[in-house]
């Protein structure tokens, strides 16, 4: 089983990945530099117009808006997720696996279904309205569904289990004695948390944040379902270029910038966590 056999074993999978992942992704890169044909389609002349158009205030605005929504969702998810992971790590050791399991379980169910659950809660004839009526409130509730907060809540809801998982790993490995040493030296519980616990588990926080941010900024489903028709994030804009506006080169340019942001952050995060695990051996 030596010599050539590894290459032979890997060949079908690698050929598949090359044909249906590497080549299509390179194609997107190339497409961004061609001109749009008069009747849609592509005209094969080199241009930088598409990339320039991405930085047009209208579209740059959508990028900033998406980054804002994604950043907000990531921040809220990290605060909630870290608190939950901390509480799980503080529970008796024999209960921790079960708590962690139930924290991650929703992540296993269908994304569309989890998003849909919020439509059921938030829509005009939804559960929240029902509860308000039950308490004798007859007026109209403020519009909940198809708003920006609804999109943020949906994103937090969908990605929270991952953040809990990412933060739990470093928290559960944290050395109890270091916390005791900090207290013995006179630090309060809060100071210990802020100066010792958080810095030592920072790569969990960073992993959670980057993951939620990257998946949120390119998200297409949640804005479409919870944000309503008029709400646009980059994912929806890209979708429109390819499937309705028929301006592929511009769609490709938008994707390229989106991919650059996502991959940049993911690489940064991998780099940071490699560094953290490298220095982590000393503690």
């Amino acid at each position: 089983m030596k010599d050539r056999s590894p290459a032979l074993l890997m060949a079908p999978a690698l050929a598949w990945l090359t044909a249906f992942m590497v080549v299509p992704c390179l194609l997107i890169l190339a497409l961004a530099f061609f001109r749009r044909g008069i009747y849609g389609g592509i005209e094969y002349t080199f241009t930088l117009e598409n990339l320039g158009l991405v930085f047009d205030p209208l579209y740059a605005g959508i990028f900033l808006k998406s980054a804002w929504i994604a950043g907000l969702a990531a921040l809220i998810a990290v605060v909630l997720g870290y608190a939950a992971a901390f509480a799980i790590a503080a529970a008796p050791a024999r209960r921790q696996p079960a708590l962690l399991f139930f924290a991650v379980l929703p992540f296993w169910s269908n994304y569309l279904v989890r998003t849909y659950a919020w439509i059921v809660l938030l829509n005009r004839e939804g559960l929240l309205t029902g509860i308000a009526r039950w308490f004798g409130y007859d007026g109209e509730l403020p519009k909940l569904l198809y708003t920006e907060p609804a999109v943020v809540v949906g994103l937090v809801y969908n990605y929270l289990p991952f953040v809990i998982l990412a933060c739990y790993a470093p928290l559960s490995r944290l050395n109890v004695e270091i916390g005791e040493a900090s207290r013995d030296l006179g630090a309060s519980g809060w100071t210990t948390f802020r100066r010792v616990t958080v810095p030592m588990t920072f790569h969990g926080i960073a992993t959670g944040f980057v993951f939620v941010f990257v998946l949120s900024i390119g998200n297409f489903v949640t804005p479409a379902l919870l944000g309503g028709g008029q709400f646009q994030m980059i994912g929806n804009l890209v979708y429109a270029q390819f499937l309705t506006a028929n301006d592929w080169p511009f769609g490709a340019a938008l994707s390229m910038v989106l991919i650059a942001i996502m991959m940049g952050l993911l690489t940064l995060q991998t780099f940071a966590s490699e560094k953290a695990s490298g220095s982590g051996r000393h503690d």
């Binding site: 992942m21 299509p24 990257v214 998200n219 490709a252 994707s255 989106l258 991919i259």
Partner: peptide, 8 residues
């Protein structure tokens, strides 16, 4: 991200 592979 799914959307990237989907578009590509």
């Amino acid at each position: 991200p799914d959307i990237v592979l989907a578009i590509a």
